[in-house]
Nucleic acid binder design. Structure first.
Lengths: 240, 240
DNA sequence: TCAAAAGTGTTCAGCGTACACCCATGC
DNA sequence: GCATGGGTGTACGCTGAACACTTTTGA
């Protein structure tokens, strides 16, 4: 125990080896395709959790930031770079990991499943699982997933993080299906369309769907350029 | 480097001593009194930061959670227990601390300054500094403080975390002054009062101020009981 | 001609915002 | 009686929510 004035930010002169521990990052990798919202999970073979699935994670190396570690995990598991991700919170129960003291920081990411390629044969125990069919997970990963999903749902209503998961050209119905799948709520079609039009961030491509056995829908793309301008200038209120 | 399937959540059987590091918590302790919003800072005497002030923080012990560590720091510095606090985010630049690799998690708390007692004479280098007069801080604490202040401002508009900092009996003007000091914006008096009344969470104590050289104001208290009931039942929309 | 999805307008209620005058008290 | 802060009401514009019918295409 330290005396009243010693602490990490004032008087101490060295870091005790005894108080050192392992840090990990755990990533809830959300993915979307026409079937809906899914999460990338891996089989866990650690004693006492055998047969369960877990999130993707790894230990943080001594010379990298947490963000570096997340980038590394995401790249290794999806082969994709420059992915969006966000920190959610820490999990630090001393008994949370059977191998010893491991504090973890939870992050979530969100990708288009069709962009994802199975990386190598050893990754065959990796699987996309529908958000509605998540099994019991190893460690405290159930809680981590819940917390990250809540954050995603909050974030996606105020930030256009979903548009990079759309096809380059999409219909308003595809967009609505996406939001309904992620948020697990239904929108009124007319109100949804009016809302999106009023944002004035969709580009009408003046093209229509082809080879559909019903009235073809107009195609749109998202105006990332305009969005970034509005973001910088500060007068943006994106909300769904 | 691990092979493609090894990671903290699957195959490894032991934690490498090499990858262990120190974790700290840093607390932005916000305080409020009639003078406004302040932050509790301490003198930093660490070489290269001498003369600067820093946040309150400490290393996390091997057998405690981050929340335990925060509770410990808050209790030591304020002598108060059961304080509200919230995790904000991690700071993990490998070079952020001169003594070595220290990852820190930032938390903020919020207390009534009049409840705070100087704990012992060694703490004389502790000081409440107005939010508008924060000097250059040691380490990355400037950034941490900014991030925590943004979070506080967001939180306080949707959660009644401010009411425990009010006197037991308060006037609507005192309440408005509090929100204006924390958020650094002005509210229209009539609209503020209407808003608070419409929440229906204030108890009209049917008492008035005494010994004031103007029309005495009515006194109110916050109905924590009703708030918690509404919170549980789910149909609560507290927003300012 | 039928099935299937696309597209379109209006009404209503609630909420945030802007704004100006009289009231009660101590000195 | 005056200085000081306490207390009150109205009007307007925006936004979210509810709701049903016609259009276009391929089969």
């Amino acid at each position: 125990m330290m005396n009243a004035t010693e602490n990490i930010n004032t008087w101490i002169t060295h870091l005790s080896a005894k108080a050192k521990m392992s840090i990990s990052v755990d990533c809830v990798i959300f993915g979307y395709d026409e079937e809906g919202l899914k999460v990338l999970l891996i089989d866990c073979n650690m004693p006492s959790y055998e047969g369960k699935k877990s999130l993707l994670g790894d230990l943080v190396e001594v010379n990298e930031t947490l963000e570096n570690a997340v980038t590394r995990v995401l790249q290794k598991r999806t082969t994709l770079t420059d992915l969006y991700f966000e920190e959610v919170k820490s999990y630090s129960d001393p008994d949370r990991h059977p191998l010893g003291r491991v504090i973890t920081l939870a992050y979530y990411s969100f990708i288009k499943i069709s962009d994802y390629k199975i990386h190598d044969t050893e990754d065959k125990h990796l699987e996309w699982i529908s958000i509605n069919e998540i099994p019991d997970l190893a460690f405290d990963h159930q809680k981590i997933l819940e917390d990250c999903y809540l954050r995603l749902k909050k974030k996606i209503r105020t930030h256009p993080i979903g548009f990079s998961l759309m096809p380059k050209k999409f219909t308003l119905m595809q967009l609505q299906n996406f939001y309904e799948a992620v948020l697990q709520i239904k929108f009124d079609r007319r109100n949804f369309r009016r809302k999106l039009n009023s944002l004035d961030l969709l580009i009408d491509l003046e093209e229509i769907q082809d080879n559909v056995s019903h009235r073809p829908a107009k195609l749109y793309s998202f105006d990332f350029k305009k969005y970034n301008q509005l973001l910088k200038s500060g007068d943006l209120n994106f909300a769904l």
